[in-house]
């Protein structure tokens, strides 16, 4: 299929992009890496009359670090994140998850901000943002605001972003000393959206402090499962703790079935993943 006609507008700055959004309103879509948007255009699932291209805004891409955080520009390509030594050192969970994001060709073009703003419930990066307590920096007509990842994902392809706003950066706190992380997903083929995935971060070693278990491809958005995480607090990760966490999972997950796994299968697989990921983090 061929995309319906649209106007293409190239923004040179965030402010200009905001202006264009304000001018065209609901008719406009932001073009980041285009790895989802272009497909929906060509499938005629989406027919915006205006595309505002963010790819030529110089300061939207890049990875910088402060003492306590790593800031990644929204237009940073997946491949740049995947290969970044800063990410590898301070955000090992992201580094571990990146190879699971689609295929190399898609990671060459796809952007971190695009993935978060799209909010596909089966995508890896939204779940990692939850597990890592990322903060999303959003530019709008009234200036910039910061939103915690936990408040950003509202539902299926729905986020806290207003139609006239642009996600400009994601800030991840650096992993504290002793933090442990784990990432696994179950997919029928390498590079597919997962049947179920889990991004986990646990503070403290060997006694666990706060922990976050972010499941994806289970509901209409990535889900932080608080009950199983709470079972780890004050414990070492051993068989008993893992079983307690696994048993607590049902309270927090209400899986939606899809073509490859119905709700019961997803529930089962989420338990299996919980055991495996926590097994990766186990102390004894």
């Amino acid at each position: 299929m061929k995309a319906p006609d649209f106007s293409y507008l190239r923004a040179e700055s965030v402010d200009q992009a905001l202006d264009l959004l304000a001018r065209h309103g609901d008719d406009a879509r932001l073009l980041a890496g285009g790895q989802s948007l272009m497909a929906t255009l060509n499938l005629r699932l989406s027919a915006p009359s205006v595309l505002v291209d963010l790819n030529h805004i110089p300061d939207l891409a890049g990875i910088t670090e402060t003492e306590t955080a790593v800031r990644i520009g929204a237009m940073t390509r997946h491949v740049a994140v995947e290969r970044s030594p800063v990410v590898a050192r301070h955000l090992p969970l992201i580094a571990a998850a990146m190879p699971h994001v689609a295929h190399a060709a898609i990671r060459n073009r796809g952007t971190l901000g695009g993935s978060l703003a799209l909010a596909d419930p089966a995508a890896e990066m939204p779940a990692c943002a939850l597990a890592l307590q990322a903060v999303l920096e959003i530019a709008g007509p009234g200036g910039r605001r910061r939103v915690a990842a936990a408040d950003f994902f509202h539902g299926l392809f729905e986020t806290d972003l207003a139609p006239d706003e642009i996600l400009v950066a994601i800030e991840y706190p650096k992993a504290p000393a002793g933090a442990r992380w784990g990432f696994r997903e179950l997919a029928r083929r390498h590079g597919d959206y997962a049947m179920v995935g889990l991004a986990a971060m646990v503070e403290g070693d060997p006694i666990c402090g706060a922990g976050r278990l972010a499941y994806f491809a289970v509901e209409d958005r990535p889900v932080l499962a608080h009950a199983p995480a709470s079972k780890l607090v004050g414990e070492v990760i051993d068989d008993t703790a893992i079983t307690a966490a696994e048993d607590a999972l049902d309270a927090d997950l209400d899986p939606h079935g899809d073509l490859h796994a119905d709700a019961a299968t997803k529930r089962h697989l989420a338990r299996v993943l919980t055991r495996r990921v926590l097994g990766d983090l186990r102390t004894v």
Binding site: L186, R188, M195, H260, A261, D262, T265, H268
Partner: peptide, 9 residues
């Protein structure tokens, strides 16, 4: 056929 993960489970 196909013998999918769900069918195997």
């Amino acid at each position: 056929h196909p013998m999918t993960p769900q069918r195997i489970l």
